[in-house]
């Protein structure tokens, strides 16, 4: 489990770094929210406790990278993780369209959450009406990547669990027969 969480941490961190790199030549509206996708994929594949810690740490890394208030992204990611787990328990999210819809919603929810957090600590609401089309576009582009991110996450988890079972088997065969 620790190995899986560490690998996830590496993937999530690379996603957060790449996100800022993509936003430079494109435009924020055209660049996918990769760190949110990583959190989404972690929520759908990891166990709750390590998943919660992981999204919190990834959120802190996003804060450090972006220069936002330390804890702002982390707080949003924790709440999003809980919401995602609740949604995943209630709905069947195996279809790509369901994952895309969820990612689209989560980008908007993330923007609202961040705006609420900054309202709480800065005093005014950061989201303007005229920026909403940009967010909708960003959400749509992020949604396009959601099925691929989820598939990659499942693949990673399967490979890691396969590795664990092979190790257990090899240990079992070396056990002396009593």
């Amino acid at each position: 489990m620790i190995r899986a969480a560490l690998i996830w941490f590496g993937v999530g961190l690379a996603a957060a770094m790449a996100e800022a790199g993509l936003a430079d030549p494109l435009s924020v509206a055209f660049s996918p929210d990769l760190s949110l996708l990583a959190a989404l994929a972690a929520a759908l594949t990891l166990a709750p406790a390590p998943g919660l810690v992981l999204v919190c740490v990834l959120g802190l890394c996003s804060d450090l990278l972006s220069g936002a208030l330390l804890g702002q992204h982390a707080l949003a990611r924790i709440i999003e993780f809980a919401a995602l787990r609740a949604i995943a328990d209630k709905f069947d999210l195996r279809r790509p369209l369901a994952k895309m819809a969820l990612a689209w919603l989560m980008v908007h929810a993330d923007a609202m959450l961040q705006a609420c957090i900054s309202w709480l600590f800065f005093g005014d609401f950061a989201l303007a009406w005229r920026s909403l089309p940009g967010w909708a576009l960003r959400a749509a582009i992020t949604a396009l990547f959601a099925p691929a991110a989820a598939s990659m996450a499942s693949f990673l988890v399967e490979r890691l669990s396969e590795g664990d079972s092979v190790r257990k088997m090899s240990l079992d065969t070396k056990r002396p027969v009593i």
């Binding site: 450090l64 208030l69 330390l70 707080l75 809980a82 600590f121």
Partner: peptide, 30 residues
């Protein structure tokens, strides 16, 4: 109640971090 406790603990931790960081000026060395 391990997961709800962890959830509450992390929420509290991030809120404290935000409050502490809010006092830090933008020029203070990271």
């Amino acid at each position: 109640s391990r997961v709800p406790l962890l959830f509450a603990g992390l929420l509290l931790l991030t809120l404290v971090l935000i409050l502490v960081d809010r006092r830090r000026g933008i020029l203070e060395t990271g």
